[in-house]
Amino acid sequence: MVDLLFAITVGVLFSVGVFQMLRRDLIKAAMGFSILFTAINLYIIAVGAFDGNVPAYANQPEDSQSSDPLVQALILTAIVVSFGSYALLLSFVTTIARRFETLDSDEVNELVG
């Protein structure tokens, strides 16, 4: 049951993220990226190999089941890299806001033919 809810959440987050990304407001579009990153991390943790009841540490009692350490390491890397690119994206937004004095992406149209 909670598996289904995980899948629904990932789907909804993707919808919301894509919708935000298509907005004219650049800050809202940047927020869309952040939602997509989060959705992917949530997805990775949901597809871990086993449902643990204790953290993935080596000195756990015999009868307990550790959570999958591999997906956690993957997510850690993903969080860091996505934060780096998110920060870069935000600096693009500030730069555009400074150069074109607008946050409306429709007004940034120097490529118009």
Binding site: D3, L4, F6, A7, I8, V10, G11, V12, L13, F14, S15, V16, V18, F19, L22, A39, Y43, A46, V47
Partner: peptide, 18 residues
């Protein structure tokens, strides 16, 4: 567009979680 992408991702996620 958002709904179609979201639904595809949901199906993909549901398959891989199941």
């Amino acid at each position: 567009i958002a709904l179609i992408i979201g639904f595809s991702v949901f199906v993909f996620a549901a398959v891989s979680i199941a």
